[in-house]
Amino acid sequence: MNAPSPNAARPLLEVRGLRTVFHSLAGAYAAVDGVDLSIAPGEVVGLVGESGSGKSVTGFSLMRLVDPPGEIVAGEVLFEGRDLLSLPESAMRAIRGDRIAMIFQDPLMTLNPVLTIGEQMIEAVTEHHGVGERAARTRAIEALGQVGIASAAQRLRQYPHEFSGGMRQRVAIATAMLNQPDLIIADEPTTALDVTIQGQILHEMQKLCEASGTALLWITHDLGVVAELADRICVMYSGRIVETGTADDVLDAPRHPYTAGLLGSVPSVNAPGSRLHQIDGTAPPLSARPTGCPFRTRCGNVLPVCAEIDPPLAGPVPGRGWRCHNPMPERDAA
């Protein structure tokens, strides 16, 4: 546990002080408020948080796909040392889908309903590499085979509505793998699916990334999912990362009361028959974030100081930290 985290060597992606705001008539609200994040080559990082915590906006910010009224106003996204935020749009486009791929939440909405699966997969190749359509098609067939879609050649001629939700998400995964990217950002890719399909997709995704050495940023609200998948976990609340560490540390010995609360509400990690915990209240809207620590209004460990000073992210070793004045008692990781 005290070994230096693997990303200390040479991170594939390093995010520093990322801040994304949404402009409205009443002012600008930060959906992502100073996020630091680092992903090593081949590493699986889980980014966990409730709806509205800013985790999806973080994902889109890394791809520079934040649409107005949203705007990335500060920070660096260093990908292999290059700051993506200062690249010209054409250079960013060349990276999207090629070096960094993304899988979206709702497979029903993300595939274009009037274009064939084949066209939508092939364009992901031909827009990046000077290969012919035939070569791209062959690669698409291979990729579909890897995610367990039978008779791929015929499937390529079909339209999205001829696929089930799970199948469509497999298509999205195959598409993401087409150019053997260094990093895949997966934004709640299993949330819209049946639980049984969820498990399969999770397993396939893990297998594929491991085989190809692709790093994975898995964005989810479901701690149960990251528990199976992630090497490291970042917990997000109200636009900030409130706790980070290896999966074992965070899951077995959470220090931030919010992480502890989230863990208490996951059925799969609690003893059967025990009562599930529930975090009181709801996440504060961005426009009415409390002073000091944003979690203090829902926190069981709240102290007077919490209303005044927003605690910084701090911890015993690099790669392990939490933002809390009064953390949960230390426990040994199992």
Binding site: D98, A101, M102, D106, N112, E123, T175
Partner: peptide, 22 residues
């Protein structure tokens, strides 16, 4: 504003092609 346009952008599809095909 549809997700499929954003998804096409995430795949790195050029703007011209997004407009003409998608």
């Amino acid at each position: 504003l549809q997700d499929y346009v954003k998804y096409a952008r995430a795949k790195g599809v050029r703007r011209g092609r997004i407009v003409r095909r998608h």
